[in-house]
């Protein structure tokens, strides 16, 4: 029996982290067209932290949500348009209704891995509107498998049609993935998914471990374009999945073309695993912090690696970007 894997591609969302949320409407149009041509099932678009997140706190996006979503909608015909939604950043009245009216098909409602409670209203609303709703547990390395199952079960009850855990820090080894995905598959009714980051060079391996443990949804981006060390490189993932006998519905050659286009048109720099990304992964720090850490560390002349270590010690999570400056100032004081 051919096993089907649902691929969601956040090149135009997680990739926005990699360019400090400066993707242009034209770039969105170019990649959306290429991904649609390749038959990518879900193309996720928006600010790196999702709908409604553009702010001084986490970074101002070049384009507003409406422009990004309308542009993508215009260039997607086969692929579904997806968004990442963190309640708090995105409100139902101000953001979600408008996004659905623009024509968003898939909404992935995300929370920190121990705070699924905040997703109830958003998940419920998306289902009420007849759209696809998924639950996403971010920074999942910070909670044991049993807690992830409890939180995921809440999302399932709230209406999630699938639960994706994110290795937001790129901290997992395959054994971690196997333990957590297996527990989730056993504990949930709905399909389980995995979103990797590549800080330790494990993104493709971890994604494959996830499906071997029962996951049915994987995230990947062109050239791995995403926060920090980047995500699972989608064209590589498709190649490996095809070789292993999995079906994604994506045209491999056209996916390679889309990746080439993405490299040429939207990436100032192709993601690589920089030294500080390795430390970030080991410390378990949210990949979306990398631009901020680099900038502030440089400004105050402290070692980024020390900043990541301390952020890891403090168990800082996405949305707490203001702690970075606090950590840097502490290091400056200690240096004196």
């Amino acid at each position: 029996m051919i096993k089907h894997i649902l691929i969601s591609d956040p090149t135009l969302r997680d990739g926005n982290h990699a360019v400090a949320h400066q993707l242009t409407a034209n770039q969105i149009a170019i990649y959306a067209t290429a991904a649609d041509e390749a038959g990518v099932p879900i193309v996720e678009v928006g600010h790196g932290n999702g709908l409604g997140a553009s702010s001084m706190q986490v970074g101002l996006a070049l384009e507003d949500d409406v422009t990004m979503l309308e542009t993508a909608r215009k260039h997607l015909s086969k692929s579904k348009l997806g968004i990442h939604v963190i309640p708090g950043f995105a409100t139902i009245k101000r953001d979600l209704i408008r996004a659905l009216d623009i024509g968003v098909d898939v909404v992935r409602v995300a929370s920190h891995c121990t705070e699924a409670d905040i997703t109830q209203r958003h998940l419920g609303f998306v289902r009420e509107r007849g759209k696809e709703a998924y639950g996403v547990l971010m920074m999942s390395h910070m909670a044991p498998a049993s807690v992830l199952v409890e939180e995921a079960q809440k999302m399932e009850l709230y209406g999630a049609e699938g639960i994706i855990i994110m290795d937001s820090a790129g901290a997992y080894l395959p054994s971690d993935v196997e333990e957590k995905i297996t527990a989730l598959v056993n504990g949930l009714k709905v399909p389980v998914g995995f979103h990797a980051h590549n800080n330790l060079g494990m993104a493709v391996a971890n994604s494959i471990t996830a499906i071997q443990s029962g996951a049915k949804i994987l995230d990947g981006t062109a050239r791995g374009f995403g926060a920090g060390a980047g995500n699972t490189q989608l064209e590589v993932l498709i190649a490996v999945l095809e070789r292993m006998g999995y079906f994604t519905g994506i045209d491999f050659y056209k996916m390679l073309d889309a990746s080439d286009i993405a490299e040429r048109e939207i990436m100032p720099v192709i993601p690589v695993i920089k030294s500080e990304s390795i430390v970030s992964g080991l410390a378990g720090v949210f990949s979306g912090f990398s631009k901020h850490v680099t900038r502030i560390s440089k400004e105050y002349q402290v070692d980024q690696r020390d900043v990541y270590r301390e952020l890891g010690n403090r168990k800082v999570v996405g949305g707490q970007e203001d702690i970075i400056i606090e950590v840097v100032m502490d290091l400056v004081r200690k240096k004196k």
């Binding site: 699938g162 989730l184 598959v185 949930l188 009714k189 399909p191 389980v192 029962g214 049915k216």
Partner: peptide
């Protein structure tokens, strides 16, 4: 209308 099944197992 279509009926679709989404299941972890």
């Amino acid at each position: 209308i279509e009926i679709i099944n989404k299941s972890s197992k």
